[in-house]
């Protein structure tokens, strides 16, 4: 649509927003050091460079200023084809009609946020342990973040959890996994199982944020991602080269008692070790239950 003399992309619907999330690789989170008035230019540069998602992460500014800023950042992202989220504040997301909100473990409950936001906005949740990542799967959210991968001045009190936490989250997640924490290149996190790489300083403190975003986006896009599959009707992830037998083993499934179907085709037990899991495959793992 056209507003004044600007070509403005219409806000995406709930499904389009999630489709775009699934194609996203780079997530830029604003830092604490950049002055508020510089953030629009920074976000503009990040989106132009290739940031798919942008999160406004400010905790102390006056409410009115934050609302105004969030509205303008949302507009910049919309025009540039990016997704805009705010940190912590459901109220701010509502006031700015933001594409979503990112919540921490200590923030407002995901269920409550969903009820207040409705179906459209994305909800993301920080997770720091495999158990948190697993429990998050029961919540009405759209992605989980796993980290901090490395110690970071952004969160001085938190303990670094390494790429192991990214991989642990990827092994259980039904929703995209965002790797975060001290990352300065794009490939390692994707190879560890993340769908997106989130950065703060690597873009916000870069001499040329647009170039930094562009480089990170290219690195992330060039890495070999884990496959998305449907397993018994639910989205799941599988690392490159994984066989169906390996997938069953890590789920603790004994092949003797089950039948496996891949894309409508039965895979005989003796072939499970040779059957590679491939992108977009639909796997069904069934067993006998009581019946008449």
């Amino acid at each position: 649509m056209t507003v004044g003399d600007l070509e403005v992309e219409a806000a995406l619907g709930p499904e389009q927003l999630r489709t775009r999330l699934r194609a996203s690789r780079l997530y830029v989170v604003t830092d604490d050091l950049t002055p508020l008035e510089k953030l629009p230019d920074l976000v503009q540069a990040a989106v132009a460079g290739g940031a798919d998602l942008v999160q406004l992460r400010r905790k102390r500014e006056p409410w009115a200023e934050l609302v105004e800023l969030a509205r303008s950042l949302q507009e910049i992202c919309r025009r540039g084809g990016g997704i805009f989220l705010v940190n912590d504040h459901v109220d701010l997301a509502l006031a700015a009609q933001a594409d979503g909100v990112h919540l921490g473990q200590g923030d407002v409950a995901v269920q409550e946020a969903r009820e207040r936001l409705g179906d459209r906005p994305l909800i993301g949740l920080s997770t720091h342990t495999p158990d948190q990542a697993l429990k998050a799967q029961l919540l009405p959210l759209d992605y989980i973040a796993a980290g901090p991968v490395r110690a970071t001045p952004t969160k001085p009190d938190s303990v670094e959890v390494g790429f192991q936490q990214v991989t642990a989250a990827a092994l259980v997640s039904r929703v995209p996994v965002v790797a975060i924490g001290g990352l300065d290149e794009g490939a390692s996190a994707i190879e560890a199982g993340a769908d997106l790489v989130a950065v703060v300083r690597a873009v916000c403190a870069a001499p040329d944020p647009r170039l930094a975003a562009s480089k990170l986006r290219q690195e992330a896009a060039a890495a070999t991602p884990w496959r998305w599959i449907r397993l018994n009707g639910e989205p799941r992830k599988s690392p490159p080269g994984e066989t169906v037998l390996e997938l069953l083993a890590r789920l603790g499934v004994e092949p003797a008692g089950v039948a496996v179907e891949v894309d409508g085709r039965i895979v005989p037990r003796e072939r499970l070790a040779a059957e590679l899991v491939s992108e977009g495959s639909a796997l069904e793992v069934v067993h006998f239950v009581g019946g008449g």
Partner: peptide, 30 residues
Amino acid sequence: TLAVRRLHLDGDRRSELEGLDLSRYHLLPN
């Protein structure tokens, strides 16, 4: 007789059939 259903991949996987040695019976899946 037996039915065929998706295996629960998370949580409790115990089945009502766990007390049976299926190899001792002729199985008639439905």
